[in-house]
Each structure stands twice: as C-alpha cells, then as structure tokens.
Design a binder for these strands. Structure first.
Lengths: 229, 229
DNA sequence: AATATAGCGTGTATATTTTACACTAAGTAA
DNA sequence: TTACTTAGTGTAAAATATACACGCTATATT
C-alpha cells in the first residue's frame, strides 16, 4: 500500500507560542535548548509529531509535558515549511499558540529532557531565537492581536474571576494601545457575556474591584454577533 | 546528521481550494481522480510537496500545473493532520485557498496525470469528496468569508476592470446575503481604493456601467485602517 | 480619629457610522 | 416611439463610537 506515496526523508514538528499574562505584561514561554542543533539557544517549545498523534493531540501533549497542565486553550495558526529551516533535514513545523492563566508562578516546571529549563519572557524583550522561531513568534503575536478583537480569548489569559481593569489591561497590552476606561467598560458589558459575581477582589490595599466571570453560555447564544474592539 | 531526527513513514501534501467567480456563482475547481485511493472520486487539486520546494512554492507549482497560470493569488490557511486521513499512510496536508479571475472559460486544462479532468463546480452543489476534502473545503470557504470582510480579496475574483455591481455581487455571494446597493457603493467608494476608469462596460444590452479598477497603491497607503463589511 | 493614597465606578454630549428606503437616467431592442 | 433593463443617486433616523473628570471607598499611615 504505502509504496504508492512518494517519500523522502522528512518529518513534521509542532512549535508552540505559549502566551501568559502577568504583572501587566504579555509573556511567552521559552526553553533553553539542551541539544544540537542550536544547543544553549533559546527556542519555542516544540517537538516531533508522533506516529499515532493527530496534530492537535501532539500540541496538547507538548503543552502538557511543558506545564503539567491539560486542557490548555490553543489553536493552530500557521505551518512553516521552508526547505532549509532546519539544519538537519526537511522539517515542516505546524505552529500553535496557547493561552495560559498565570496565577503568579514565574516558572513552569520543565519536564522534557530536550530543555534545560523553561522561562517566561516578556514579548517586548526576547532573546535571539533558534531556527525560524522569531518568525513563528511574530506571526503568532499578530494572530492573537487580530483574534482578540473578535473572539473572547482575553479571558483565557486571566484567572476565572477577574476585574474589568485586569481585562482592559490584557486588551491594552496585546493591542499595544491605551483604551478609555469608561468606554471599555460600557462596551464590554454591553456584549452581555460577563457575569457580575457580587464579589470583591481580595487583599488589595485600596478599594476592591468587583469580580466578573466570562459566561460561555451567554457567549454561545450570541452566535454570529461578533464582539468587536 | 539526519539520524538525530526521529522518523517514521510520513509525508506532506498540499491541497488547494481554488475559487472562481462566474455567472454570479462562486465555484471551485475539482478534479476527478485517476488513481487509487479514491479512484473516480472528486477531489480537491493537490499533490505531494517536493523535496526542494517550500510549501508556497509547492502550492504555486500545483496551481500552475492545474491551470497553466502563474502568479495566482493564494494563501495558506490550515493544516490537516488526523492520523487516518489518508488510507495509505500518514499524510499531513497543508491547505491553501486560491482566487482566480474567470474570464468565461468553463474548464481549465488539466495537465497532471493524476487527474482525468478538472471542472468548475458551484460551491452550493458539490459532489461527495475524497479523503477529508469536504472538511478542507468548508474551512477554506469560512476563511474567505472572514477575510473578504477586511481584506481586498474580492478583486482577485474579478477581471481587472469591473463594475460596482459585479463587485457587490461577489460580496453578496460569498457572504451569502443581500446588500443594499446605495450603501454598498457609498462605503466601497469611501475607502478610496477604487479608480474610476472613465470607461464603460461593453457589449451589454442595457445602460453600460462605469468600470473601476482596484488601486493597490492607494490601498497600501491606508495601512492599518481596515476595510470592513 | 484624622488624613492621605490609590484605584474603583460612573454619565453625558457630540461626532461618526450605519441603516432604511425609491425614483430618475441612460442605453438597447423591438 | 415605446418598452425594457440596469445604472446611478440622497436624505433622514437610528445606532454606535468617542471624548472627557470627578466623587467614592477601602486601606494604610500618622
């Protein structure tokens, strides 16, 4: 059977741009490579797709190995296949971005052997990256910039309960521009997808803000009606 | 060198959803397969990526073999990699959509040996498709539906000189809804990306409409400012 | 207890954009 | 000349987006 398919040495891999939002900054996870090629360079987390894995499964696995978490929000966004992108042969890489809730942890336990360590790095201050990972990152960032305007992905970067100021912050950092507080709140609440939890922020040394939750149910009911920023 | 990369029998292919607009209908090119698997089935045009081709190059080549044309507008939009999507082994397929100006030809000369013939088929009346091509097509259609709202891709489906009615038609068919003529024209002209050619339609048996051209120069100058429908 | 501090939460007026809607003009064909 | 078919045009009302500033409240400090 298989002999019908033309073959040459080639393989495919997944690379992930894992975004997190913390201390008012948008960050991504980078690993320090432990192996050739690009040993000791910084790189996006990624790996070869297994024989019995779909692409999504492979991305999930990689994210799980990296963070210990399951059910991470992720989305495939582009495939990179330049002939010489990998020095050891033809490797086509399918890129995913993932969005993570950071609860304050600064580092994620690195489980794989292919990395020394994983670190969160502010997207505004990235080191030189291995392979074509700079390009992959840039396209991923562009992607979420577009997507956050119409899709409810900002919530994936926040804890389940969040304040409107925190939410506005995510938008401002990703869109890279200041938004008007009153207008932001008016518009955001007008979509009717936030549930007021009748609960206040804890442990702040000033007036506590109301906590909200993203209501998937209500969002689903919007159907076509698009959120738009 | 290469032995560092884990390998198993696998390969990658390109599949193209080639859109054309003709007689007020949105169509795609389908081929009738000449080989197993799915011999005699309808399928999207596609092929295996060559060893020395980038993905874009491969897609260009496939489109050229199919149509004889070069410089076709195309864009990669998703990669399909379910384990069992191909009965003969692991084949990951990178999907492109392409947009073609149809000048009235009904069929495109099929050059490859892997197809008996290529035909234009109305997207509203497609036959059963081989592999997971139905899914690939649907995602491609969704993609251009989204994209036409913000990007100037409608022009790729029209001859260089077109009337506003023709343009509105493209929008209506792709978005699948009627638009108001006056509002459409007002908005479209307000973007300032159309050049009035001071020229009229020829050979129509009624009042001839003014011809316009998409002005890439002016569009480039808009920069961030997005078209929006 | 009084005061300072820091972020929370709110409303209105204006400008802009979107929507709804129907007739005359121009060219062709009979 | 008439009939037919599509081109081309404007306005008013509604909805949405923008610009803008201050009193409130909880905590921390003295």
């Amino acid at each position: 059977m298989k002999e019908v398919l033309p073959k040459f040495d080639s393989t495919f891999s997944i690379d992930c741009v894992v975004f997190g939002f913390d201390e008012g900054e948008l960050k991504i996870l980078l690993i320090e490579r432990n192996e050739e090629p690009f040993k000791d360079w910084w790189a996006l987390p990624g790996n070869i797709v297994g024989e019995d894995e779909s692409l999504d499964q492979s991305a999930s696995r990689i994210l799980n190995e990296l963070t210990g978490l399951t059910n991470i929000y992720m989305e495939q966004y582009y495939t990179f296949g330049d002939v010489n992108r990998h020095p050891q042969g033809r490797v086509v890489s399918i890129a995913y971005y993932a969005l993570l809730r950071l609860g304050g942890e600064k580092s994620v336990k690195p489980l794989s052997t292919y990395a020394k360590q994983a670190y969160w790095r502010n997207v505004k201050d990235l080191p030189k990256l291995a392979f074509d990972h700079q390009k992959i990152f840039e396209k991923g960032l562009e992607k979420i910039k577009r997507r956050i305007k119409h899709q409810p992905i900002a919530f994936e970067l926040l804890p389940e309960k969040f304040t409107l100021t925190q939410l506005q912050n995510v938008y401002e950092v990703i869109l890279n521009k200041k938004l008007d507080k009153r207008n932001f709140r008016k518009k955001m609440l007008s979509f009717g997808v936030l549930r007021d939890l009748d609960e206040k922020q804890q442990g702040v040394s000033f007036r506590a803000a109301t906590l909200y939750k993203f209501d998937k149910r209500k969002y689903a009911k919007l159907f076509g009606k698009e959120i738009s920023f």
